[in-house]
């Protein structure tokens, strides 16, 4: 089993959206895929999937009797693809428990995340996609530690280059995973790009921006996803590529998936 995580320096970059869509694309290819919401401080995956899960990863971290089977929700019947998800709790009290976790609880959380990883692997999952909290939250790093590939998501119009660079220098240099930058919601001059294809003028701008990122971060930009109005309109109400598999956005996610799998 290979693990791909989505991470960012700041919130609101579209990690959850990209994670869910990539998981969907992989499951549509026939890979048994799980998506884990480790964004305990701003959980959004439940909304995106349109369900309310009673037993969450938060419970798994605190209750030694729970296993992965107890928290995984299957979408096999609903979408006819081998897609599973484990959610972070939206219960304010449980979110507080994560924030207040002491040293011992953090040890236990790490141990249970590692156990969950092994359990998923033993149960024949091909891929696990992890949606993390932004920044250097401890639970995010637990997710990054077990990842084979990490996608640092940057929203092209608004990101803190010095903060992101600092995080990359100090944290990403320690990671064992293959690390890439995903530029999300790139706003082109000609909006929206027809069929998701950049005009030659826009392409030059995007390539220039990608080069700047590469020079600054010393990381490859694996893809630059345009800002699509249709995607923005649907927002976090559903998994876009499930509903619109032929849309250019879904094609971009498919390309991202292919590039990631090739690198693993």
């Amino acid at each position: 089993m290979k693990i791909i995580s989505f991470h960012s320096y700041k919130g609101g970059t579209g990690k959850t959206h990209l994670s869910a869509n990539l998981a969907t694309i992989l499951a549509r290819k026939g890979f048994k895929t799980a998506i884990l919401d480790l964004d305990f401080r701003g959980p959004n995956l439940q909304t995106l999937c349109g369900i309310e899960s009673e037993v969450t990863i938060n419970d798994l971290l605190f209750d030694p009797d729970l296993t992965g089977q107890d928290i995984l929700v299957s979408f096999e019947d609903q979408y006819k693809i081998p897609l599973f998800a484990a959610f972070a709790s939206t219960d304010f009290r449980k979110m507080g428990d994560i924030v207040r976790a002491d040293k011992k609880q953090r040890q236990r959380s790490l141990k249970r995340i590692l156990r969950l990883r092994d359990e998923l692997s033993e149960n024949g999952f091909d891929y696990t996609i992890i949606d993390t909290s932004p920044g250097v939250q401890m639970e995010s790093i637990d997710g990054l530690v077990i990842s084979d590939a990490t996608c640092l998501v940057l929203k092209a119009d608004d990101f803190d280059i010095s903060g992101t660079k600092s995080m990359v220098t100090q944290l990403y240099s320690l990671l064992d995973s293959k690390n890439y930058v995903v530029l999300n919601r790139v706003v082109a001059e000609t909006c929206p790009p027809e069929e998701g294809v950049w005009s030659s003028a826009d392409l030059k701008l995007v390539e220039k921006f990608e080069k700047t990122i590469k020079d600054e971060m010393r990381m490859d930009v694996i893809t630059s996803i345009p800002c699509f109005c249709e995607v923005a309109r649907e927002g976090s109400r559903n998994i876009f590529s499930l509903k619109h598999p032929e849309h250019p956005f879904s094609q971009y996610i498919e390309k991202l998936g292919n590039a990631l799998l090739k690198g693993l």
Binding site: R106, Q107, L110, I141, D142, G143, L144, V145, L175
Partner: peptide, 8 residues
Amino acid sequence: ITSGLDLL
């Protein structure tokens, strides 16, 4: 080892 960061 108290966290993933310690592992790293």
